[in-house]
Design a protein around this nucleic acid. Structure first.
Lengths: 149, 149
DNA sequence: CATGTTCTTTAGCATAACTCATTACCCTCG
DNA sequence: CGAGGGTAATGAGTTATGCTAAAGAACATG
C-alpha cells in the first residue's frame, strides 16, 4: 500500500496541497449557491445524489457517507419523504433498519440540478484554454477518488 | 478570449464537469471538519483568509466576497474583534463605513489552520500513486484559477 | 433466554445564517 | 443651504440545520 507513494516533503508538493485545499473550499462555496430548488438544503441534495449512485441505502449508511450523525439523517430522510423525493421501505433482513430509495421526482430534480451546476462550472471553464482544461479533466477522477477515501 | 476554448458539448467533458463538481463538494465537506479552532466557524475562518489576501476591507465588501448578507458580516466581524483577530477602524473618507483588518494573532492562527488542513489532505493524498498525484498537482493551479474567476 | 450491541428515532439544544426594520451618514437637486 | 433618496452598518427576531443524550426495537451470542 505504501509503494509509489508521493513524497510530500518536497516544497512543490506542500504548495500544491495548499492550493488544492483553498481552491476546493472556494469552489465549493460558489457551487453551493447554485441551487436548483431553494427549498432543498445542500445536504439534502447530496443525499439524493448519493442515492442516485447507490440506488438505495439505509439511513445509517447515508449518515456515514454524508459525514452526518444518524439523528440528523433521520430528519433529512423524513423531510425528503414528505416532499415525495424518497421512498422508505422496511429492510428485508433486519427489521431495525429501513431502506431509503429515490423516487422518479427526485431523479428529475437531480437532473435539473446537475444541469444548473454544471452550467455554472462550465461557464467558469470557458475561461480556460485547452491545455488547462485537459489537466483538469485528467485530475477529475483522482479528485473523486480522494473525496471518497 | 474565446480562442482555444474547450468544447463542452462532448460527453466526456460533461462527465468531467459532473465529477469535478461532486468531488469538490464532497472534499470541501470533509475539509470543513478540519478546524484548528472549534470556536471559529468556517465562514469566520474564510473571512480571515480573505483579509489575509486583501489586507483590509469594509464589512460590506467582506459580505459580498463571502456571499453573506451584511447583518451576518456585522456579527462575524464583531465576534472576530472580540477574539482579537481583527481590528476595526473608521473609514478615512466615509464615516458610514468601517475598515476591517487582521491582527498578528489572526495570521498565526491562519498559519496553524493551513498546516492542519494540509496535513489532512496530505494524509488522503498518501493513498494515491505517483501518477495520480502528478495529475492532481498539475491541475491544482488550474483549480485555483477557476475558484478565483 | 438473558444480556449486550446495533439501528433508528425522539427530545432538547446550539449555532449561524436569514429578513425586516432602524440609525447614521453621504450626495444631489431644487 | 436643506430636503430627499440612496447606501452602510447594525439590532431584533426567525429559521435552518446540525449536534448530543437517551430511549425503544430488533438482532446476536453466551
Amino acid at each position: 500500500m505504501l509503494k509509489n507513494m508521493p513524497d510530500l516533503s518536497h516544497g512543490d508538493d506542500v504548495a500544491a496541497v495548499n492550493s488544492l485545499r483553498s481552491a476546493v473550499m472556494r469552489l465549493s462555496r460558489r457551487l453551493k449557491h447554485q441551487r436548483v430548488d431553494e427549498s432543498l438544503s445542500p445536504t439534502e441534495m447530496s443525499v439524493l445524489g448519493t442515492l442516485s449512485l447507490c440506488g438505495s441505502a439505509t439511513p445509517g449508511e447515508l449518515a456515514r457517507k454524508e459525514h452526518v450523525q444518524p439523528p440528523s439523517m433521520t430528519r433529512i430522510v423524513a423531510l425528503l419523504e414528505s416532499k415525495g423525493l424518497v421512498r422508505l421501505e422496511p429492510h428485508p433482513e433486519d427489521r431495525r433498519q429501513k431502506v431509503v430509495s429515490r423516487t422518479e421526482r427526485a431523479e428529475v430534480m437531480l437532473e435539473e440540478s446537475r444541469r444548473k451546476r454544471n452550467a455554472f462550472l462550465a461557464s467558469l471553464v470557458e475561461n480556460l484554454d485547452e491545455d488547462e482544461w485537459a489537466k483538469l479533466r485528467a485530475a477529475a477522477p483522482v479528485l473523486e477518488k480522494l473525496a471518497h477515501l
